[in-house]
């Protein structure tokens, strides 16, 4: 006895052949700087519960994402780790006019996993061994780190550079660097013991303003931008160790 092919089977075949066709209303692709990826994942999880829109996150370094967008990558939103690249996209007319805004201000943390005493500002003066920072040529957290270290005697320190703040964190986490200037959001996310890191005073470096831009005015893009300024979203952002753009420095 032969059975006709079931509808489910045909749908499965169709989906395998045309995976990009989805039943949901709209897909919004968000290119996000890797340091903000964990936070954005939480935000999108909440948003997806109340929306039909499918949010796809593409994580990478801001520089690479910028190059990809300049070369026509089909992203709807860019959430950068700095304000330089969004401004450049603005100048080149690649974004929706007026969409550029700061969504979070990054904070730096000095992390010394092997420390036996509480880590604080005076720690910087007495550092020894490998100190990991993000590459200041590429990464905004590296620029801030470099500013913080200006005027500090680094003769006993060997500066090693991660390609981004994620890699910098990994250098310290594996023990290959004895200390690191990483993102406060990372040490919060990894639930590092409070005594082992020092949230760097924001006055000691220029603020790490993370800006976003949108490339179009689709319903999903608008929905996302609106959700990002709700209390739900801003609570997630500030709990992860970022300062909100409007709030006062502390």
């Amino acid at each position: 006895m032969t059975r006709p092919l079931s509808v489910q089977f045909l749908v499965l075949v169709a989906w395998l052949i045309f995976p990009s066709i989805s039943i949901s209303a709209e897909t919004v692709r968000i290119a996000v700087a890797s340091n903000f990826h964990p936070t954005l994942t939480k935000i999108v999880q909440v948003l997806s519960k109340e929306s039909d829109t499918k949010y796809v996150l593409i994580s990478g370094s801001t520089g690479v994402l910028y190059s990809q967008i300049s070369n026509g990558a089909p992203f709807d939103i860019l959430m950068a780790a700095d304000k330089v690249r969004p401004a450049l996209l603005d100048t080149h007319g690649l974004i929706e006019p007026g969409s550029r805004m700061t969504y979070a201000v990054g904070r730096l943390a000095l992390w010394v996993p092997g420390s036996t005493s509480p880590v604080n500002k005076s720690f910087l003066q007495n550092l020894q061994g490998n100190l990991a920072i993000a590459n200041p040529e590429i990464a905004p957290y590296g620029v801030a780190a470099k500013e913080l270290l200006r005027g500090i005697d680094l003769s006993k320190v060997r500066l090693v550079m991660g390609n981004n703040v994620g890699q910098t964190f990994h250098f310290v986490q594996t023990g290959n660097a004895q200390a690191g200037l990483v993102a406060l959001s990372q040490v919060r996310h990894s639930e590092i013991d409070r005594r082992l890191f020092w949230p760097v005073d924001e006055g000691l470096h220029k603020p790490i303003e993370q800006q976003m831009v949108t490339m179009n005015q689709s319903a999903g893009t608008i929905e996302f931008s609106a959700f990002l300024i709700t209390e739900t979203a801003t609570n997630i952002i500030s709990n992860d160790g970022y300062r909100l753009p409007g709030s006062r420095e502390n």
Binding site: S61, G63, V64, S67, N130, A132, L159, M161, G162, N163
Partner: peptide, 19 residues
């Protein structure tokens, strides 16, 4: 660790230039 004169090879330098 991207250290000039020690570990920054051509392919890394190229990547940095792009970024």
């Amino acid at each position: 660790g991207n250290i000039s004169g020690e570990t920054r090879v051509l392919s890394i330098a190229l990547f940095d230039h792009v970024e």
